[in-house]
Nucleic acid binder design. Sequence first.
DNA 1: CAAAAAGATGAACCGGGTTTGCTTTTGAAC
DNA 2: GTTCAAAAGCAAACCCGGTTCATCTTTTTG
Lengths: 213, 213
Amino acid sequence: MAGLRERKKEQTRRRIAAVALRLFAERGFDAVTVNEIAEAAEVAKVTLFKYFPTKESLVLRGVGQENLAGIVAARPAGRSPLEALREHYRGFATEPAEAVDRETLIVQMRVIFASPALSSGANDLLHGQRLALARVLAEERDELTAALMAAQITASVLTLQERFFRHLVSGASTDEAGRRLCGDVELAFDLLENGLGQPLDRPFDRPLDQPGE
Amino acid sequence: MAGLRERKKEQTRRRIAAVALRLFAERGFDAVTVNEIAEAAEVAKVTLFKYFPTKESLVLRGVGQENLAGIVAARPAGRSPLEALREHYRGFATEPAEAVDRETLIVQMRVIFASPALSSGANDLLHGQRLALARVLAEERDELTAALMAAQITASVLTLQERFFRHLVSGASTDEAGRRLCGDVELAFDLLENGLGQPLDRPFDRPLDQPGE
DNA sequence: CAAAAAGATGAACCGGGTTTGCTTTTGAAC
DNA sequence: GTTCAAAAGCAAACCCGGTTCATCTTTTTG
């Protein structure tokens, strides 16, 4: 019934997250205390921690929630896990992001990249994904193979994400970053499929990084 | 000149690490405070932190110092990075561990696996390795390929390590774990070389996990 | 042996996070 | 509208990892 209570809570949560992101962007993650955030957001520290379990979660909320395991588990019959994932990321690269507004996302990523604590925190989030993916893959092959596949896949996806956001953060337009990501996705999945043995090494060539942004 | 001072310091460092490991093994990483460790090791807290920068480092000292980048950079001419790494891990799997005594190592790993904080801490240590490896690889290929290769390789190596130590921790003898690791190394590097596309899927078969431990 | 250099130390402090005990707000039943 | 239980909010005190600082002890060196 979407009560008043719910709305107020949602509003408070947003306010806290927004204030926190702003302060982090202004002065850096480590230089802002949760007390300051709570004060600026006009809640008690204890209340803040009821909404967000840790300081990091103020920024990492909803980052890297790809659910690779789900994508693989839900793939149509006859399609390999890699094909399914490649398809998914093709879609992600072409469609224009949606949901949260770009500006906020960029600031968020900038803050994350600027703080070692947050970067490695984001890293950790993928650990769970890796285990889940390994579990799904293990239904069709032996456990070690499944674990290795999951490890390679999540590592590659993480690399793609990092590059994508790094482009965005360093000023590329959403379109341009998306276009780059397109090629990157193909390369990444080709490497996964065919292995590192073949020197297929970037068949098409492109400007090898920003020629000035 | 190997002064008295040096010896005492080394001795103190060892004592602290040993006491910490014992306490962690007895009661778990989170249930032990650094004050307790300092007290039990008969040093001041501030002294403890001069030897070990963080609580985690009391356990993670020297864990996962493989230096993949170094191995690749130092490989003989004409050998591919993957070949060099495979060779290195073949050696590691056959030679019997050396250095630290097995018992301590096992306790250490048990403690690490039992604590999420430590597990993800150990994870983090590989992050630096990944970047270093990517940098070395980037000397011979484009940056994205290098980054993806580094990501896949470090992820695979981490998986191998985890399995190896998990075997040890769950009671396998060093020999047995080493023998398993042998096969695992070949599979892991075959997957890296040839890709996940080919269903080479474990050509030899083995008991597919502990039949009760 | 004396003075400098290096360590060790206790005490106070900081910041993230939790506990406790209390007040206020909300939603629903009467 | 009144009543009441549940939910949310709060201040203050606390815990723990980690740092700072000023002081004291030990080792080295000349």
